[in-house]
């Protein structure tokens, strides 16, 4: 109930701000900035509820082996979570693949826990009344890298391949509208309607601020969302087909984007419109 009230209050503020935005560009930019500052208060960010749920899921014994995920190696050693997200996606020798956090978690559920991931994948994106283990786990694990900086992993040839493919995908146009990621995110200071668009075609501030703010609590969706969901939604708006969850093109794009964001600070979960 309190969550609902909080959400409504935030939504009301958001509506008010958006209303203002229609009248004056400069004033609206300032107001939006003020709104962002207001909602970035951790005490009012419902994304931290997902962090708490994720913590419980991480320790829960599940699967045919009846063990928790604490035996899962996210790159820094089994069960070591501090700073793991800052170095993902990365190459894992045991799987002989580059994986992002979601792919690695699914792999650990299957191999470490002997857990059937079908239901977890079906609930990959939460909806009202349907929590997502994946969103909650990512919120919890990414939060363990909050305050740290992205250290993109490009030492292994397969990581380099991911970065190169990610760049090619960023510029690959398609769908009935001929849109690529670069159509909207390839230049400075552009807007779609009133929404400012980060330039992700070059390393630096925009990429750092963008990538360092995911996972995030989306006020408009009333849910914590991860980069998997953001890219799924980007491809929807690009008029591309539905991308497969936790698949290689999505991971390649994340490697490319983290390369652009390298050295940027992670502050998560954040809170966004």
């Amino acid at each position: 109930m309190r969550r609902t009230a909080l959400r409504s209050a935030i939504a009301l503020v958001a509506l008010g701000i958006l209303g203002l935005a229609a009248y004056a560009q400069d004033a609206s930019e300032k107001e939006i900035e003020r709104y962002r500052a207001m909602i970035s208060d951790p005490m009012s960010n419902p994304g931290f509820l997902a962090v708490d749920r994720g913590e419980a899921l991480w320790a829960e014994k599940r699967g045919s082996k009846n063990v928790s995920l604490e035996g899962c190696d996210l790159g820094n050693g089994a069960g070591k979570l501090e700073g793991a997200y800052a170095k993902l996606p990365r190459y894992f020798a045991d799987a002989d693949r580059v994986m992002d956090l979601e792919q690695r978690l699914l792999w650990c559920m299957q191999t470490v826990q002997g857990f059937d991931t079908k239901d977890v994948v079906a609930r990959r994106f939460s909806a009202p009344g349907r929590a997502s283990d994946m969103e909650d786990l990512v919120a919890f694990i990414a939060n363990k890298s909050s305050g740290m900086k992205f250290e993109v992993q490009l030492g292994h040839p397969k990581e380099q391949e991911m970065a190169a493919v990610g760049e090619a995908l960023f510029y690959r146009r398609g769908g009935v509208m001929d849109f690529a990621c670069a159509t909207c995110h390839g230049d400075e200071g552009k807007r779609i309607r009133l929404q400012a668009l980060p330039n992700l075609a070059k390393p630096g501030k925009d990429a750092r601020e963008t990538m360092g703010a995911w996972p995030t609590y989306r006020v408009s969706q009333g849910a914590l969302r991860t980069m998997q969901h953001r890219l799924w939604d980007c491809y929807r708006q690009q008029r591309w087909p539905v991308p497969e969850y936790g698949s290689d093109a999505i991971t390649a794009l994340q490697v490319y984007l983290n390369k652009q964001a390298n050295g940027g600070e992670i502050t998560v979960p954040s809170i966004k419109r």
């Binding site: 391949e161 493919v165 995908l169 991308p243 497969e244 290689d248 093109a249 999505i250 390649a252």
Partner: peptide, 11 residues
């Protein structure tokens, strides 16, 4: 290689 990634995600 790019096509293989596209296939993995949109196939």
């Amino acid at each position: 290689v790019v096509d293989a990634y596209v296939k993995a995600t949109f196939g």
